[in-house]
Amino acid sequence: MIAARIVIVPVTVDQVDIDLPYALVARLNSARMSNPALKVIFVLVTDSSTPSLQQLAAVRLYVTQVMSATLAHTVLHVHDTYDYGLGRCVCDAEICDPGAAAELNSLYHEVYVH
């Protein structure tokens, strides 16, 4: 991370507990001190449900624990029932999940285009 330009950190609502020490937060803060230009973007990953306002607030509070980190506007939804094929994901599946592909495209544009 010391030489990286961007770090994208997927996070679920279950992972954000600011009362517990979290090694990744310390690692990201350490990397930011060595590499002040490092852009840290958290992206919320959830099941097919929409996160509640309380859950979003908890994630936003968690993100503030990392210096200059931001939370992506794009939320990625994981669909356990969609079978992409052995060893494949939404990016290289023969039969694409249009919703998942659109979310990844949105995240790409948010991170790299804007």
Rank of each mutant, 00 (worst) to 15 (best):
M1L: 10
A3L: 07
A3Q: 15
A3S: 14
A4K: 13
R5A: 10
R5M: 03
V9F: 09
P10A: 09
V11G: 03
V13D: 01
Y22M: 06
Y22H: 14
V25E: 10
R27Y: 05
L28P: 02
S30I: 05
A31V: 09
S34C: 10
V43L: 08
V43C: 14
V43E: 09
V45R: 01
T46M: 01
S49V: 00
S52T: 15
L53I: 04
Q54F: 11
L56Q: 13
R60E: 11
L61Y: 06
Q65C: 10
S68K: 11
A69F: 12
L71I: 12
L71S: 03
A72H: 07
H73S: 12
V75S: 01
L76T: 04
H77F: 00
V78S: 00
V78W: 00
H79M: 03
T81K: 01
Y82F: 12
Y82D: 02
L86E: 04
G87D: 07
R88P: 11
C91G: 04
I95T: 14
C96S: 06
D97S: 07
P98C: 07
P98F: 11
G99Y: 00
A102N: 12
E103S: 03
E103A: 12
S106A: 15
L107G: 15
L107C: 05
L107N: 14
Y108W: 06
V113G: 02
V113K: 05
